Amino acid sequence: MTWKYAVLLPLLVASSVSAALGAASTARAERAVDVDPAVKDALDTMIQDEYEAEVIYRRVLHDFGEIRPFSNIVWAEQRHSAAIAALYRARGLPVPASRFSPENVPAYGSVREACAAALEDELENIALYDRYLERALPDDVRAAFEYNRRASLEHHVPAFRRCVARR
């Protein structure tokens, strides 16, 4: 190999890689621009709703110790927000940070009070998903929303109802 190729080949490879990465970034940016504002609104609303539930349940665990159903459902809330975060990434959008912290969510005087509030929050969560599922949504968004809604309806609501009944 002559010196010209030895010098030029790495430059050509680096240039090709840079161009490919730039094209990928441009494609992500173009996808982000093309996101339907109604879909973006749905993603924004639902990820913040899932974040809020997680922080509230963590606050309950902090205040009352590792109690069920909060100790189980807090992990489900993380999975719910992670599923929505994946929808942002698939569209080349930044995943928003949570607006919630233990300081700006409610504290409860008893476990029963926390369970009753969590039950109401889960029912409101289901109603939010219902509202968005009435709309035309991309298949991946619909699937994630249906999964999260079903988990709340079939698992979280019954668990919090049992919690209220036994306390």
Rank of each mutant, 00 (worst) to 15 (best):
M1Q: 09
M1S: 13
T2S: 15
A6V: 14
A6T: 11
A6Y: 10
V7A: 14
L8Q: 10
L8K: 05
L9A: 15
L9I: 15
P10E: 08
V13K: 04
V13R: 01
A14P: 03
A20G: 10
A23N: 10
A24S: 09
S25K: 07
S25I: 09
A29C: 03
A29D: 10
A32H: 04
V33S: 03
D34S: 12
D34L: 11
V35P: 04
P37W: 02
P37F: 04
A38R: 10
K40M: 08
L43V: 00
D44A: 13
M46W: 00
D49M: 08
E54F: 02
V55L: 02
Y57L: 11
R58C: 01
R58M: 07
R59C: 01
R59T: 14
R59G: 06
V60F: 04
V60Y: 05
L61H: 02
L61T: 04
H62E: 14
D63S: 12
F64G: 09
G65Q: 10
E66N: 09
I67H: 07
I67Y: 01
R68Q: 12
R68F: 07
R68Y: 11
S71Q: 12
N72P: 00
N72A: 13
N72S: 13
I73Q: 02
W75G: 10
A76I: 06
A76M: 10
R79G: 15
H80V: 08
H80C: 12
A82G: 07
A82L: 13
A83G: 15
A83K: 05
I84V: 15
L87P: 02
L87Y: 00
R89V: 07
A90T: 07
A90G: 15
R91Q: 03
L93Y: 04
P94H: 09
V95G: 04
V95R: 01
S98W: 05
R99I: 03
F100L: 11
F100M: 11
S101C: 11
P102T: 13
N104T: 14
N104P: 09
N104I: 12
A107S: 15
A107H: 12
R112H: 13
R112M: 08
A116T: 11
A117C: 12
A117I: 10
A118E: 01
E120A: 15
D121Q: 07
E122I: 03
N125D: 15
I126A: 14
I126T: 08
I126M: 07
A127K: 14
R131M: 07
E134I: 05
R135T: 10
A136C: 01
P138H: 01
P138E: 02
P138T: 00
P138I: 00
V141Q: 03
V141A: 05
V141F: 01
R142V: 00
R142I: 00
A143N: 01
A144V: 15
F145R: 01
E146L: 10
E146F: 00
E146P: 02
Y147E: 07
R149Y: 04
R149Q: 13
S152G: 15
S152V: 12
S152P: 02
L153W: 06
L153V: 01
H156S: 06
P158T: 11
R161D: 07
C163I: 12
V164F: 05
